[in-house]
Amino acid sequence: MIQVGIVGGTGYVAGELLRILMLHTGVEIRFVYSHSHAGEKITTVHDDLFPLENMYFTDKVFPDADVVFLCLGHGHSSRFLTENHFSEKTKIIDLSNDFRLKENRQFGNRHFVYGLTEINHQQVQTADSTANPGCFATAIQLALLPLAHDKLLENEIHIHGITGSTGAGKGLSETTHFSWRNNNISVYKAFTHQHLGEIKETLTSYQKEASRYPFHFIPFRGDFSRGIFVTAYTRSALSEKELQEKYRQFYAKSIFTRVTDQNIHLKQVVNTNYCLIHVEKHENMAFITAAIDNLLKGAAGQAVENMNLMCGFPQDTGLKLKAVYY
């Protein structure tokens, strides 16, 4: 058994982490940190986690925990690690964007490995710290990595992605309010989304010349609570059959990314840690669709994947979740 702590325990991602970890056969939840809710029952915030009704938030960390998940807002993880010291043996898994870019991955004596398990499986296994990819970044990278791997990104790339309201976190704003979001759709951060940096770093690590081509990403706010659905297209000389074979080969050993011949939809992946990918060819365009649950494969589930690899558990431990289809 390993002892696990969660910092920033009141958000959606922390709630999903707790849901997974309380059923994980190799984990004991040591502490759930929340400065604003210290002393309160966890179920006062996460009332779906009533099996944890005897567990309380704390404003103290346990520096000897085996694994600590940082579920803090962007820019806060590095500050928290500066102010709170953990044992050298404590493995850190950060879910913010503080350590995702190469220039930020060294933090004191810690080196953060980029935790996209489909490509960094071995590096994660030996890491003392991992930077969990962003939710949109996860879906988009998985949609395009087979092309970059085989040096097939040779033209500009167009991407559209729609995300559920939980992707914006628990903090209330006009665009997350039910009466605004319901029966509505809108574009936000067109061409400037914060996940573009990590996406481009990963793709160009496989294909340097890909940096020469424009990368157009239009994100949408969807009128649903969870899930990400991405479409991407770029010119390709390969046939549909050749493209599909490239994708199948690239993900042949992947546990959680599946390539399917059928058109995909969000209900297939919501409440799971899977990414589904479908590939088509239209005239001279390769057309790729990808779907994930933003709170699981895009956040908490992928973080548990990283923990499993770092701690020697089978990668899918605690993550054998069925989609909520109806």
Rank of each mutant, 00 (worst) to 15 (best):
E83S: 12
R19W: 03
N97W: 06
I2T: 04
Q302W: 00
L49T: 04
A190W: 02
M310W: 08
M310A: 07
F86E: 04
P51N: 06
F107R: 07
H35L: 13
H121Q: 09
V61W: 07
K267Q: 10
H35M: 10
V113A: 09
G75Q: 10
S173M: 14
Q302E: 10
A300L: 01
N271R: 10
A299I: 00
H74I: 12
V68K: 03
L52M: 13
F57I: 07
L276G: 00
A148M: 04
E83I: 03
V67E: 08
G108K: 11
F256I: 08
K281R: 12
V13N: 01
D47I: 06
F86T: 04
T175M: 12
S96H: 03
N271G: 00
D94V: 06
H282C: 08
C311K: 15
L18I: 00
Y206G: 06
E28V: 11
L321K: 09
D66T: 05
A139I: 02
T202I: 14
R105K: 14
Q302K: 09
K102T: 14
V259T: 10
E305W: 01
F215Q: 07
S78T: 11
I140R: 03
F191E: 15
S173Q: 14
S254A: 15
A131W: 00
D48Y: 11
H24F: 03
K200R: 15
M55T: 11
V304P: 00
V27T: 10
L81I: 08
E103H: 09
L81E: 05
F178H: 13
S186G: 09
K267T: 13
A291V: 12
V68Q: 02
P51A: 07
R235K: 15
T175E: 14
D94S: 14
